[in-house]
């Protein structure tokens, strides 16, 4: 087995190549789930907004299926740069459960200046409390930190803030 090529930071100038028009509007293979707005803010260890992060999401469709292999479509994928206040927005659809045991979730990958490697987390939905309780991935997370992975349902959509450090530090996963 060959050792993988090491990662390096995305740095401050990634928007030159990685900002795509409308990439925060995620398309899906039918069946679609409920259309949702997903927004949040990224904070550093001082509690200050991170103004230069890139967030990518990757998710299943309404039936819990990831896009069919070979359908070179970009389905299920979204990308958004945060604004000067660290805020991001995605317009997508709520995924179905990938397996009967798992609660609906979306993978988020965060890149930023100052991070040598990408950070991967899983967003769960605040209005799925019963399913979240039995999710096998959430079960791997210490109880006290699980709340960092739950997006709150607000009147403007789901809200998922990401804290890189501090008492509310978001749980990140090994890929």
């Amino acid at each position: 087995m060959r050792r993988p090529t090491p990662a390096q930071t995305v740095g401050p100038y990634f928007s030159l190549a990685l900002d795509w028009p409308q990439a925060h509007q995620v398309t899906h293979e039918p069946p679609l789930g409920v259309a949702i707005c997903l927004r949040g803010q990224v904070f550093d260890g001082d509690g200050l907004p991170v103004p230069d992060a890139l967030i990518e999401i990757w998710q299943a469709n309404g039936a819990g299926d990831y896009p069919t292999r070979g359908a070179a479509s970009g389905y299920g994928f979204g990308r958004a740069s945060v604004d000067s206040e660290g805020r991001y927005t995605f317009l997508t659809h709520k995924p179905g459960p990938v397996t009967p045991q798992e609660a609906p979730h979306i993978h988020l990958t965060l890149f930023a200046r100052g991070l040598m490697n990408p950070l991967v987390t899983r967003l769960y939905f605040g209005d799925e409390a019963a399913r979240n309780q039995h999710d096998p991935a959430l079960a791997q997370v210490p109880l006290a930190r699980r709340a960092t992975l739950i997006a709150a349902l607000t009147h403007t959509g789901y809200c998922f803030d990401i804290h890189l450090q501090g008492p509310l530090e978001t749980v990140f996963f090994d890929v």
């Binding site: 950070l119 991967v120 791997q140 530090e169 990140f172 090994d174």
Partner: peptide, 11 residues
């Protein structure tokens, strides 16, 4: 101020 302090969790 950006590197997470907790180890990533293996799934």
């Amino acid at each position: 101020k950006r590197a997470p302090q907790a180890a990533a969790i293996a799934l």
